Computed example of a mutant assay.
Amino acid sequence: MAAHTDLHSAQGPRPGEHLGRSTNPMIKVADVAWLEFAKPDLARAEAFAHAFGFATALRTDTELQLRGTDPGAPCVIIRRGGTRFTGMAFTAAEDADLLRLADAAGSRVRPLPESIGGSAVDLVDPGGLPVRVVSGTHPLAPLPAQLPHVLNFGHDIDRANARQRPPRVPASVQRLGHVVLQSAHYGAALDWYLDTLGMIVSDFQFFPGQRDRGPTMSFIRCDRAATPSDHHTLAMALGPVNRYVHSAYQVCDLDALAAGGEYLKGRGYQRSWGIGRHIQGSQIFDYWRDPDGFLVEHFTDGDMFDNTVEPGWAPFTASGLAQWGPPATGDFLGTSPRHLRAEAMALMNGLRGDNDFDLRRLVGLVKAARS
């Protein structure tokens, strides 16, 4: 219990703190549509994707589109190339939003490839990440879904005269849930997503002892008015460089997540951290490294908020990443020996750069990682 003292968010900011939403956003996006990556070996990427629980929506010599069982657009688009995260797309609430964005950004509405359909406006966030807002894409038909198990809770017996035998198979991905980014221009990037895309903050976190300097982590959801939205569709953390951290994909229940993890482990893939339950967002999680080094998450049972919920505030600490589960690993935190050289270079470049990351922030980051 002591490790979790004061880690659960207190509702509401102090006077003068960030309100977590824009008073006059350009538009309000409805959801994240897909993520885009470049990877050198599409066959290897597809093999991991199938073991993780994706289905292939399209495969060519140069492009791989991966989907979940839910209807809609592909979750992930991978193009042949050097290993990198290349951008993301959000779904506009209505077609007219694309015209509003194009006018405001001095851009234009352009057609997407026929394999996707629809139209897009291409933007760039303050960290230089390409961001698309899309509308009218071809809806993929739903696939047969993995069903949650019938469970007996306490004295409530819903399963009688029947055994529970979850198969050790890939956990079928239902949909893309969220993406987490690190930003060296955290303040400008946060305001850009709130002002441009109309997103709202569910939870803020700050480095221990540095709340006076403002938040350094934000969990941001789509504003769908009275319709509940994922606790976070986008999360952003202050750090020395602008980069992808991880992305998360919903599965139907804990058994699917755990059995799917056993399936991945049996095929030699690397678990990064899990299984556990987060504090901010409450998701049950399990993190994996794909063969190209990208961190991906299975999750289930996450919080859903409508737009009446105000942001919480809590210190950012390694022990505060989970309510239960194993301690966060060095691989997940970026402190394992395999990451140290790259992390040291990122820190040196960040401290030399013109951004929000300075020496005091570095001290706070180190304290958070050790706490």
Score class of each variant (00 low, 15 high):
Thr5Ser: 14
Gly12Pro: 02
Arg21Trp: 14
Ala30Ser: 11
Ala33Met: 08
Pro40Arg: 02
Glu46Cys: 01
Phe48Glu: 00
Ala49Arg: 06
Asp61Gln: 03
Glu63Lys: 12
Asp70Tyr: 13
Ile77Gly: 05
Arg80Lys: 15
Gly82Gln: 13
Thr83Gln: 10
Phe85Asp: 02
Asp103His: 08
Val109Leu: 12
Val109Lys: 14
Leu112Trp: 05
Ile116Gly: 03
Val133Gln: 04
Val133Asn: 00
Val134Ile: 15
Ser135Asp: 02
Pro142Asn: 03
Gln146Ser: 01
Leu147Arg: 09
Ile157Ser: 04
Asp158Trp: 10
Arg165Thr: 06
Ala171Gly: 15
Arg175Asn: 11
Leu176Ser: 04
His178Tyr: 14
Val179Tyr: 02
Leu181Asp: 04
Ala184His: 02
Asp191Glu: 06
Tyr193Arg: 06
Asp195Cys: 06
Phe204Val: 03
Pro215Asn: 04
Met217Glu: 08
Arg224Met: 11
Arg224Phe: 04
Thr227His: 10
Thr233Phe: 13
Leu234Arg: 12
Ala235Pro: 06
His246Met: 12
Gln250Ser: 09
Gln250Tyr: 01
Asp255Asn: 08
Leu257Arg: 00
Ala258Asp: 01
Ser272Tyr: 09
Gly276Asp: 08
His278Asn: 13
His278Ala: 14
His278Asp: 13
Pro291Phe: 07
Gly293Gln: 04
Leu295Asn: 11
Val296Ser: 03
Phe299Thr: 03
Thr300Leu: 07
Asp306Val: 07
Pro311Val: 03
Gly312Ala: 03
Trp313Tyr: 15
Thr317Leu: 12
Thr317Ser: 13
Thr317His: 10
Ser319Leu: 13
Gly325Tyr: 03
Pro327Phe: 01
Thr329Cys: 10
Glu343Phe: 05
Ala344Asn: 05
Ala344Met: 07
Leu351Trp: 07
Phe357Lys: 08
Phe357Pro: 03
Gly364Cys: 10
Leu365Cys: 05
